[in-house]
Amino acid sequence: MTKAANDPLLIAGRSYQSRLIIGSGKYRDFEQNRAALEASGAEILTVAIRRVNLGQQSGEPSLLDVISPERYTILPNTAGCYSAEDAVRTCKMARELLDGHRLVKLEVLGDRKTLFPNVTETLKAARTLVADGFDVMVYTSDDPLVAKELEEIGCVSVMPLGAPIGSGLGIRNPCNIRMILENATTPIIVDAGVGTASDASIAMELGCAGVLMNTAIAEARHPVLMASAMNKAVAAGREAFLAGRMPRRLYASASSPETGTFFPPL
């Protein structure tokens, strides 16, 4: 086996070649976002749902004029929601906006400073949305018990944070992510916390099904270049996971034969 061939990410009955999901926030302009998306190889793009600006020029392009929902899977989020009710309302708006599209990223936040999820409201919203026919990808804490419960509710993907949203701190608790993975029957995607390429690789090497990120790309000095780095990091981490890493040893193990030297051995 030289390459992880035919190893798609399956979410809600659709298959994706890329295991990277990127956001569309914080970019300089739509063009930079489009170029980063292209370089990232991602096939799923998150968007936020917000009021239209009533003073807006009707000719001004919108995000979905630049990034086509025909070509990419648009993943509307419930960012900014602090209650199950607001999150459910946002998902219904998104479904209408995207012509009946059922895939959503549920996030119900608990606190503006940490943007940690409000798990109680998240569980409540997840139940309502699943019952209403949504395919729910859910942002949550890295608590294995909560992750399992979200899965049992019927979420199509559980997405624990690696670190706070936009923090770039990397995977702070790989042990919890491992525990979540051990019991998982749906794709586990690290959502939030990734800062640079190696963080994405670490998530994938742990066995995650994918990585979702926004700030790590958009706030890089060169976002399009970072998008390309993330593309490779996610793919490399996945291949390393499938390949199965060597065991860790405390002491050295020589790579060259220790016999047959033409000088006396030590």
Partner: peptide, 8 residues
């Protein structure tokens, strides 16, 4: 009235 805008 809402629309899709950039977000993560």
């Amino acid at each position: 009235i809402v629309q899709a805008i950039g977000g993560g």
